[in-house]
Simulated assay, not measured.
Amino acid sequence: MRVHHLNTGTMCPIGRRLVNGTGSIFQRARMVCHCLLIETSDGLALVDTGIGLDDIAEPPRLGLKWVRQTKPRLDPAETAVQQIKALGYSPDDVRHLLLTHLDRDHAGGIPDFPKAKVHVQRREYEMAVTHQIPAPKGRYITDQWKHGPDWSFYGEGGEDWFGFKGVRALGDREPDILMIPLPGHTPGHCGIAIRSQDKWLLHAGDSYFFHGQIENPPRRAPLALGYFQRKADMDRAARVANQERLRVLNASHRAEVTIFNSHDPADYERCRCGRH
Score class of each variant (00 low, 15 high):
Q243M: 13
S41G: 09
R220T: 08
R61I: 12
L64K: 10
L36D: 03
H131I: 10
G109E: 07
Y268K: 10
E159Y: 06
G155H: 02
E39H: 06
K71V: 13
R173K: 15
I180W: 01
D233E: 11
K65H: 05
H253N: 11
L225E: 07
A116G: 14
A135M: 08
Q27P: 07
G52F: 00
D112P: 15
L225F: 02
R219L: 04
F210T: 03
T79S: 14
I194L: 03
P175T: 00
Y140D: 14
E126Y: 03
G21F: 04
L182V: 00
L202Y: 00
F26N: 15
L202T: 00
L201Y: 14
M11R: 08
E159N: 11
A77G: 07
D55K: 00
G21Y: 01
V67C: 10
L18C: 14
V94H: 02
E58L: 12
V240M: 08
T130W: 08
S196F: 08
T142C: 05
D172Y: 11
E256H: 08
W151C: 09
T8W: 15
H96K: 09
V257T: 00
K65M: 03
W161M: 11
P183R: 08
R68N: 08
R239F: 00
R195N: 06
K199F: 09
S41A: 02
A80L: 01
A86N: 13
G148P: 03
P187I: 07
A204F: 04
Y154V: 01
G157I: 01
M127R: 05
L18T: 14
I180S: 02
F210H: 09
A128T: 10
D93W: 03
R123Y: 00
C271M: 14
H263S: 14
